[in-house]
Structure formats: structure tokens, C-alpha cells
Design a protein around this nucleic acid. Structure first.
Lengths: 112, 112
DNA sequence: TTGACATGTAACTGTTTAGTTACATATAGT
DNA sequence: ACTATATGTAACTAAACAGTTACATGTCAA
């Protein structure tokens, strides 16, 4: 799980996932194109390696071309094993606020 | 948003959030206690600063004591602005699998 | 089989990060 | 006022990280 959080900590890698969400099966060269002016092909390759190691991206070789696909499973794990819990805390805060608004303190002035 | 992802990339910080979820209002000293054998108070303080800057933790001073509370809002933002999108990709993959199972290819052998 | 193309590996660099130690400040209690 | 307690600041270190350049490997196509 730590590898997934670490992988998601970098903006370039998150935007690569965005692009693979929009269109799966892109090669390294294709994924590099949007960044070609800002970084080297090797830099993008390193990012892809990190995404693969976190299992956020799967790879299919076809001859000399490496096609990349988004794997949404680790993101789902984070959602279900980690985020869901904190959503409960948020609901608690919301319902506390709600009852505070609906049930003013004894002898308190409403909306004062 | 980048600050939140960066903050969540560290295991110690995630476990601090866990502890604040379990019990809000803990002081620096209290939050440090579980790690006292593995790292200095100042190290924990740095982690708390990073969590505060990402707005994942809010602070209430009471005399010389600093009380920390979990703020679930940024986590909710990640869930609603970022993760939800990739959940769609997962549903697509699941429904593709489902229809592949239900509707075998023309002249294909069922379960062959 | 030669050349072009797509990807991989390795060594290096500058910056960020997680941690340390030492010292400083501020508040509470006697 | 004095002392103990709670937190803050600063300077430093080692390791991790994002990026680079140079070179290597493997595959397609004429």
C-alpha cells in the first residue's frame, strides 16, 4: 500500500494515470510526447517503472512496443481500505454540526 | 491537492492520522509517545507541521498545550475529485468481464 | 544485413526529505 | 522568582528522489 501512496505523490505520475484513463494501450513514446519539451524519455520511463511496481499500470508487449494500461485495483483498495474510514469521521462532523444547528443549547437564543 | 498526496505518502504520517481518528485532541507529547522509542519529538513535530500545511490536521491551543484534530475534508476531496473517476474505470473493467462471461464469442465454446 | 526505431541500463547530479542534536521560548505550579 | 513542562527553531546529515547524459539492446523493414 505504501508503494501506491508513494507513486501517487508525484504530479507527473498522476497525470500519466489520467492519460492512461483517457486512453489505454499507449506506448512509452506516446506517453512521453506530452512531456517531451519538459523532460527526457528516460525520466518518463522511470515514472512508468514506479507505477508498474505499485501495480497501478500493467504492461503488454507487442514486438518492440510496450503498451501500458491503467489498473484501477490499487486505487480501489485505497478507497475501500483507507479513505472509507475517514469518510465516517466526516459524517460524524457533519451530523454534529447538523444537530448543533437543529437543537440549540438549553436557554440559548436561537440564531443569536 | 499535491500537498495532501505528498503528506499521505509517508507511513508515519498516515498512522498519526489513524491515531487522531481514534482519538481527537491529542497533544504533541501524546502523539509522540507511541514513537518515542523510534524517533525524536522534533521528528513527530515536523510530521505534524506537514499535516497541518496540507490541512489534514487542525490545531487548538490551550495554554502551553497544542491539541490536534483530524480534518477529513482534504481526504474527502481526494475521494470525490480524484478517486471517483478511477472507480469508473474499474466498473468498466468489471462490466466488460461480466459481458464477456455472459455472452461468449460467436461459435465459441462455452467454458471451453 | 544494415539502418532506423522503440525501449532499457547505468552512472552521475542537484534537490528534497526524514531524521538528528542543541538550544530557545513560553506557560504552569509552588 | 524558580523550576519543570510543553512546544518551537535552527543547523546539520544521510538517504531517497527526480532528473540528466551516454551508451546498450532488441525488433522491424528494406
Amino acid at each position: 500500500m505504501d508503494a501506491v501512496f508513494k507513486a501517487l505523490a508525484d504530479e507527473t505520475r498522476r497525470s500519466i494515470l489520467d492519460r492512461l484513463y483517457a486512453q489505454g494501450g499507449q506506448t512509452l513514446g506516446e506517453l512521453w510526447a506530452p512531456y517531451a519539451k519538459s523532460m527526457s524519455r528516460q525520466a518518463v520511463m522511470k515514472h512508468l517503472t514506479i507505477l508498474e511496481e505499485a501495480h497501478l499500470v500493467t504492461v503488454v508487449w507487442s514486438g518492440r512496443e510496450k503498451h501500458h494500461y491503467l489498473n484501477p485495483v490499487p486505487i480501489h483498495s485505497i478507497q475501500s481500505r483507507w479513505i472509507r474510514k475517514f469518510e465516517r469521521a466526516r459524517m460524524d462532523a457533519l451530523s454534529a454540526l447538523k444537530s448543533a444547528l437543529e437543537e440549540p443549547p438549553l436557554k440559548g437564543k436561537r440564531n443569536a
